[in-house]
């Protein structure tokens, strides 16, 4: 609908509009990122950063198995979180796009509000709910369960619950947008060809919703490897994930180069995993369903 205008990137009208974002993200995103990479090659002495180039931090990172165990755990949690989010989000997104005509906007507003509400508060709310003497057990006892029926607070399960809770909306929104774009007549054409509802869904809707599913998965994965609040507040800090390790390295151990290196490792591995999946996925598409 919107006409695309060809312009040289030097065009003043274009440059004027692009410049604020470019300046902001180069000075306050790209430059800090590059500096962080540079920091990994520095040393610390007596909790003070000293600008001397060295590979000390990196030999440390690559020789301590501890860091890598935590990273492995983080990647596992993030992957599980992506799978759960997609599984839960898909039917909701589909319902939002295909049903709920009258309530569609109310449901969207409710989800948006839940999404935009402060994550700390919501996570705190879960603590109150899941606590031994909290709301969940109170309700469970009311329903006739014995003792502490709900006892998952301060375990990995609670961490996972919090992660899914805080990231689910991303998947709902991206999948909803891509289902909403599907031309309804394509589905009708599938019915006309003799497909049942499920068959039409499987053969037409699902493949066409792939961009949204993929976008949601990537977004959630990248954000999930960086969670810190959930493992600390809901998981009780018992099995730390990478972000918590990084925070401790900065705050408790005051080792900036190491913290920077761990940050870089985490981001590199996360992006690498995404690219790997993308590769396998597109390979499979090219080879066809063998």
């Amino acid at each position: 609908m919107s006409a695309v205008i060809d312009r040289s990137w030097r065009d003043p009208a274009l440059l004027g509009k692009a410049l604020p974002a470019v300046l902001l993200q180069t000075t306050c995103f790209l430059a800090p990122l590059l500096m962080t990479i540079a920091l990994t090659f520095q040393r610390t002495r007596d909790f003070q950063l000293s600008w001397t180039w060295s590979l000390h931090t990196w030999t440390d990172v690559f020789t301590k198995a501890h860091y890598w165990t935590i990273l492995g755990h983080t990647l596992f949690m993030a992957t599980l979180c992506v799978a759960l989010c997609l599984l839960i989000a898909f039917p909701v997104a589909y319902a939002l796009a295909s049903r709920l005509r009258a309530f569609q906007n109310h449901v969207k507003v409710l989800i948006t509000f839940a999404f935009l509400t402060d994550a700390t508060l919501k996570t705190f709310g879960w603590v109150l709910f899941l606590d031994k003497n909290g709301a969940a057990n109170y309700l469970a006892r009311g329903l006739g369960f014995e003792g502490d029926a709900v006892n998952i607070l301060f375990t990995d399960w609670a961490t996972m619950l919090g992660m899914v809770y805080n990231l689910l909306a991303f998947a709902i929104f991206t999948i909803y947008l891509s289902i909403d774009e599907i031309d309804r007549s394509l589905v009708l054409a599938a019915y006309d060809a003799g497909a049942s509802k499920f068959r039409a869904f499987w053969e037409v809707t699902l493949p066409l919703a792939r961009p949204g599913i993929w976008a949601g998965a990537v977004l959630i994965f990248l954000l999930a490897v960086g969670v810190f609040l959930e493992p600390k507040v809901l998981g009780g800090g018992k099995s730390p994930m990478s972000a918590e390790l990084i925070r401790q390295t900065f705050e408790t151990r005051v080792n900036w180069p190491l913290g920077a290196a761990l940050t870089m490792v985490l981001m590199t591995v996360a992006v690498f995993v995404v690219l790997l999946f993308n590769r396998v996925y597109s390979l499979k598409r090219h080879l066809g369903p063998a």
Partner: peptide
């Protein structure tokens, strides 16, 4: 607009969207 640096521009302008907030916070703190 369609211009030569559109993809790098869009990538740069949207990049923090996919960056974990805690890590963004730390990088900026440094």
């Amino acid at each position: 607009y369609r211009f030569r640096l559109r993809i790098p521009f869009t990538g740069l302008a949207a990049a923090p969207l996919a960056f974990p907030q805690l890590l963004l916070g730390i990088v900026l703190l440094l």
